[in-house]
Nucleic acid binder design. Structure first.
Length: 123
DNA sequence: CTGATGACTATAG
DNA sequence: CCTATAGCCATCA
C-alpha cells in the first residue's frame, strides 16, 4: 500500500460524505480500509494541493469537535462551511448523533472507489 | 535506525 | 465538561 494509494482511498471516501453530514477521521480511515488510520486521514488532508475541491470540512474528531484550535482561521472556515450546509455548530461542537454520516450496509470499499454505476452485476 | 510530531482516539479521574 | 495518559502510525529531521 503506497502513500498515493492511501491518499486516493481517503479522498474517495471523503468525497462520498453528503452535504449536511460529517464523519470522523477514524470513520473515514476505517471505510477506506485503513484501521487505526485516523492520523493518516489528517495527514492526507494536509497534503492536498491548494484549490482542491475535497470536502475536508466534513471531517471532524470522533467526539464531534472541530480538530483545529478555536482561535485559528481554519477553525472558523470549517465551522462556517458546515453551518452553510445546515450543520449546527456550537462552539467547536457538533451533535454526532444527528449529523454523523451513516453509510448504507451495502457500502463496500469498492462502492466508494468505483461507484454504484460500475457494478458488474448491473450490466 | 532513533526520536519528535501531529487536522486522532479511547479511557480514566 | 475538562485534563491527563497511553496507544496509534506515517512522516520527517
Amino acid at each position: 500500500m503506497t502513500t498515493a494509494e492511501r491518499v486516493a482511498r481517503i479522498v474517495a471516501v471523503i468525497r462520498r460524505i453528503p452535504p449536511g453530514s460529517v464523519a470522523s477521521y477514524g470513520q473515514v480511515a476505517e471505510i477506506a480500509g485503513i484501521p487505526r488510520g485516523a492520523r493518516q486521514v489528517a495527514y492526507a488532508l494536509r497534503q492536498l494541493p491548494d484549490g482542491h475541491d475535497v470536502p475536508w470540512f466534513r471531517v471532524v474528531q470522533s467526539a464531534g469537535t472541530i480538530a483545529f484550535p478555536p482561535d485559528t482561521p481554519s477553525f472558523a472556515d470549517q465551522r462556517d462551511r458546515l453551518r452553510r450546509e445546515g450543520v449546527v455548530v456550537t462552539g467547536a461542537r457538533i451533535d454526532m448523533r444527528r449529523y454523523r454520516w451513516q453509510p448504507g450496509c451495502d457500502a463496500d470499499l469498492d462502492y466508494y472507489l468505483w461507484g454504484p454505476s460500475d457494478a458488474p452485476d448491473t450490466g
